[in-house]
């Protein structure tokens, strides 16, 4: 299946048009990540957002798991929006397929699709609140 078809199949992108997703897919990469591998690294500056097509990814802060991202969900959006270093390390906990989107393409997409922007902002707020709650 092509990258654009993988993206179109995800409910999170339901509000985006084929043309908008095609624009993202043109520069996005799909990678099959083996179980155990890290994808983001807490504290480092990295320019990518990940969408999980299949498999699952653990999100860890200070070495503790704080969240689990499953197929259809995304992670890495916080730094695309705030431009800061990674808040968390992410690790594939099974063989996992992700689509990697760079910050610019991601921001262009959420600017173009208000419904998606709202979903992303809601997820980001929920995740930041969780960090605040757990770390006081």
């Amino acid at each position: 299946m092509s990258v654009v078809e993988d993206l179109e199949a995800l409910p999170v992108f339901a509000a985006a048009t084929h043309e908008q997703l095609d624009q993202v897919a043109k520069f996005a990469e799909e990678i099959d990540v083996p179980a155990g591998a890290e994808l983001t690294h807490e504290g480092t500056y990295e320019g990518t957002v990940f969408v999980v097509v299949k498999g699952s990814v653990a999100i860890e802060r200070h070495g503790h798991a704080v969240n689990l991202i499953r197929a259809g969900d995304f992670f890495g959006e916080i730094e695309a929006i705030d431009g800061g270093p990674r808040m968390a390390t992410s690790r594939a906990i099974e063989d996992t397929r992700v689509v990697v989107v760079n910050h610019r393409d991601f921001n262009d997409l959420i600017d173009a699709v208000p419904e998606l922007r709202e979903q992303v902002m809601t997820a980001m707020e929920e995740r930041l609140e969780r960090v605040d709650r757990e770390e006081g």
Binding site: E29, I31, V33, P34, A35, G36, A37, E38, L39, G47, T48, A92, V100
Partner: peptide, 19 residues
């Protein structure tokens, strides 16, 4: 371009992408 898996003792521990 492309992505690499970094493996120790046959187990993946990291990925390295463009840049």
């Amino acid at each position: 371009d492309g992505w690499f898996a970094i493996e120790r003792d046959g187990r993946a521990i990291d990925t390295i992408g463009p840049g």
